[in-house]
Design a protein around this nucleic acid. Structure first.
Length: 434
RNA sequence: GGAGAGGUGGCCGAGCGGUUUAAGGCGGCGGUCUUGAAAACCGUUGUACCCGGAAGGGUACCAGGGGUUCGAAUCCCUUCCUCUCCGCCA
């Protein structure tokens, strides 16, 4: 399992029923019924297609005959009547086939990706596996503040006015807070574009439903998105992964161009439906947040190497900002819908005395590529194949900002700026109230 | 928002009811010629699905969807997109 690249292809499901069933069970999905239905529909489809195409073939031949007969001024009423009847039959059978195709596709669309063989089997985040740590959490010889106290005290985070403007889970950054956020965005983009080989993109911050389907936010997770009101087929993007991965939707890429690496800064918008009561304080969970995203399109052969390097690219941001973090390999039960394998980066937050997610790096293999129809022509020649798509945060800007505030706070309430960031802040070494 | 013109293969561009299996050109690939290259000439050229061990065969695709017809790239309806002019606008 995993790595074979043809996951959740209906034909693959039919031919590898047990493997697919086991993979989904490991994810905590009981898909027995759905898989049987898919296999049945697949069989019905293959029975019907040759029959329908045979009729179409006859119809085409008959139309030629009609033209010839007409030219020779022969009687055509017989041909005409036969064709008329066949046309009705073709139409009926076509409608039937369309319905089967539709059922088959929607059944497949509702199944999550299969986990890669290297993913630990488990149910919750408790079953995730720590892969490595970097840096040592600092010990404070004073009472360290949480960012939701520190930020307002410095006058750089304003929760009340954010609520006034837009409601709960919206926040205003002000003065050095806004500047710090912008500095982080520039720092991250510069690192990824100049040292890691990513091409910078500025995409639309709204996306249509085809785009959201391409990366599998739709049709299953519409409740997580903000939809534009009125007669618009548009949603606010929940992550730049959506536009970046869909840049090549419907294309056949030249295998020699792979891997393609994109990075983008965008705001991200999430309704956070169903998360009430979680992280209600502070900047951790917002309806709008900034993120620098990394996306790669690769061949199936190289995608797992590229996942490792993408994860390292994201880690490099934390290293340079001198923030302690760890890398966690998510278990089967904790992974996102589209992912075959995910590493989370978790940064140390003193206020919570724990590591908190700041990046999530995933290989979706061909799962999104199949939906978005992104293929490539192998450099060695041969048939086109689906690319593998990868994405990761590099990093979530708001969470990085609060990690800096909390980890670099001083007893007098000021915050030391990590050296790597100072060039982006006119050399400032400290953030103080003012 | 008002008025008009368009969307054809990787690109340009013909075709406006039936020998069009979508002309022709460019590009790409292969070959001839050449010391090598260019030019010239010849050949070739997409995607998906179905049948088949293969060779090969079939069906669909001229922006998307629907309709008229024995037969649609071509006619009709509709949606989307692009362009031009006017209005508005960062």
């Amino acid at each position: 399992m995993g790595g074979r690249g043809s996951m959740l292809d209906p034909a693959y499901i039919r031919d590898h029923m047990e493997e697919v069933r086991a993979g989904l069970r490991n994810r905590g999905v009981d898909a027995d019924k759905a898989l049987e239905e898919i296999a049945m529909l697949e069989t019905a489809r293959r029975r019907m297609i040759p029959e329908l195409e045979g009729l179409k073939r006859q119809q085409n031949a008959s139309a030629d005959e009609f033209a010839k007969a007409k030219r020779m001024a022969k009687d055509t009423t017989q041909i005409q009547e036969a064709n008329r009847q066949r046309a009705v039959q073709i139409k009926q059978m076509g409608t039937q086939l369309d319905s089967i195709e539709y059922q088959r596709m929607s059944a497949v669309t509702n199944l999550p990706n299969l986990p890669h063989a290297s993913v630990p089997v488990g149910k919750t985040s408790a079953d995730n596996v720590e892969v490595r740590r970097h840096g040592t959490p600092r010990t404070f010889d004073f009472a360290a503040l949480a960012h939701w106290d520190l930020g307002p005290a410095l006058g750089i985070i304003d929760f009340e006015r954010g609520t006034r403007l837009a409601g709960a889970r919206f926040t205003v950054l002000s003065g050095a807070g806004a500047r710090l956020s912008r500095a982080l965005i520039n720092f991250m983009l510069d690192l990824h574009t100049t040292e890691h080989g990513y091409r910078e993109i500025e995409p639309p911050f709204l996306a249509n439903s085809d785009t959201l389907k391409g990366t599998a936010q739709l049709p299953k997770f519409e409740q997580d998105l903000f939809k534009i009101a009125g007669d618009w087929d548009l949603y606010l993007i929940p992550t730049a992964e959506v536009p970046l991965t869909n840049l090549h939707r419907g294309e056949i890429l030249d295998g020699r161009e792979l891997p393609i690496r994109y990075t983008a800064y965008t705001p991200c918008f999430r309704s956070e439906a169903g998360s009430y009561g979680q992280d209600v304080r502070g900047l951790i969970r917002q309806h709008q947040f900034d993120k620098v995203e990394l996306v790669k399109l690769t061949t199936p052969e190289q995608s797992y190497d590229e996942l490792e390097s993408l994860t390292l690219n994201a880690e490099e941001v934390l290293k340079r900002l001198e923030l302690p973090y760890r890398v966690v390999l998510l278990c089967t039960g904790d992974m996102g819908f589209a992912s075959a394998k995910t590493y989370d980066l978790e940064v140390w937050l003193p206020s919570q005395n724990t590591y908190r997610e700041i990046s999530s790096c995933s290989n979706t293999e061909a799962f999104q590529a199949r939906r978005a129809n992104i293929k490539f022509r192998p450099a060695a020649g041969g048939r086109t194949e689906f690319v593998h798509t990868l994405n990761g945060s590099g990093l979530a800007v708001g969470r990085t900002l609060i990690a800096i505030l909390e980890n670099f706070q001083q007893e007098d309430g000021s915050v030391v700026v990590p050296a790597a960031l100072r060039p982006y802040l006119d050399g400032a070494e400290k953030i103080t109230r003012g």
